[in-house]
């Protein structure tokens, strides 16, 4: 009986509160309410130089003149921001994506909660920010079973490339670049901004799409020439990882956009 009375009072209280809240948000945030939010798709296309990456099949030559094939290419992208036509930065809800060349579905990512508008550039972190490196067990793209987390010295592998090369110094003639590190002086976190060739219009009427090229060959050059013969295996934070991270920061460019 008491419960029942309580319940009915609760209902009144609840609906009252909701009303108050609704009216508040209406008056206080007129501008926000009137701007619809929608999504933007980013599609990653992995390349080596000017040809699409063919894992295990394609034979490539790097700047150091070494032949190589690629068996694995994975990278984290996170913390997306958009720049609008007025130069204002819009920070999107924190999301983490792991792009794995072996899984096509991971190459198409969807950014949610994007306010409709005109945008000129997109910016993101290549890797996983330091907070998530120290915050315990994570889920989804950040789950440790994805093989992108160092167990003996906690931290995410921000990006990973593996393959084979006759110039490798390992018994199996392979190379493994596991690039990570979130603490100074070996913080391998990189931020990249790509500017659109023309203004990107985001509206609920059309699915805005950004097609991004990721050139894996960039891992080996500019600004640092990375030689497989000199460092066939990189598996810890340090100077070698930093050199590769500075290179792969340059690997992204816009292929096209669609409004």
């Amino acid at each position: 009986m008491i419960l029942r009375i309580f319940h009915s009072r609760l209902t009144i209280l609840l609906s009252g509160t909701l009303l108050v809240l609704a009216s508040c948000s209406k008056t206080a945030n007129t501008s926000l309410v009137s701007t619809p939010v929608t999504s933007v798709q980013i599609q990653f296309y992995n390349y080596v130089g000017n040809v699409p990456l063919q894992r295990n099949v394609g034979a490539y030559t790097n700047t150091a003149g070494e032949q190589y094939t690629v068996s694995k290419l994975l990278y984290y992208v996170s913390n997306f921001q958009l720049t609008d036509a007025n130069g204002k930065t819009i920070t999107l809800p924190q999301r983490y994506f792991l792009v794995d060349d072996a899984t096509d579905s991971t190459k198409k990512i969807t950014l949610d909660s994007v306010p409709a508008g005109q945008y000129t550039a997109v910016k993101w972190v290549i890797g996983v920010d330091s907070i998530r490196n120290v915050s315990g067990a994570q889920a989804g793209a950040l789950a440790p079973e994805n093989g992108m987390f160092w167990t003996w010295n906690s931290g995410y592998i921000m990006a990973k490339m593996e393959g084979n090369s006759p110039q490798s110094t390992t018994a199996l003639k392979d190379f493994q670049f596991h690039i990570g590190g979130f603490k100074q002086p070996y913080n391998a976190l990189k931020v990249i901004t790509v500017t659109f060739p023309s203004t990107l219009t985001v509206s609920p009427d059309n699915q805005a799409k950004i097609n991004i090229k990721a050139d894996a060959d960039k891992w080996f050059h500019t600004p640092n020439t990375v030689s497989i013969a000199q460092s066939s295996v990189i598996m810890a934070a340090g100077a070698n990882a930093m050199a590769v991270a500075e290179n792969y920061q340059q690997m992204f460019s816009v292929l096209s956009i669609a409004n």
Binding site: A137, F149, W152, G155
Partner: peptide, 20 residues
């Protein structure tokens, strides 16, 4: 955690013995 402090959160400590 660990003798060398290499693991930075109690939650991910089991990951090392499980997968080693």
């Amino acid at each position: 955690f660990m003798w060398d402090g290499g693991v930075n959160n109690l939650e991910i400590q089991p990951l090392t013995p499980l997968t080693d």
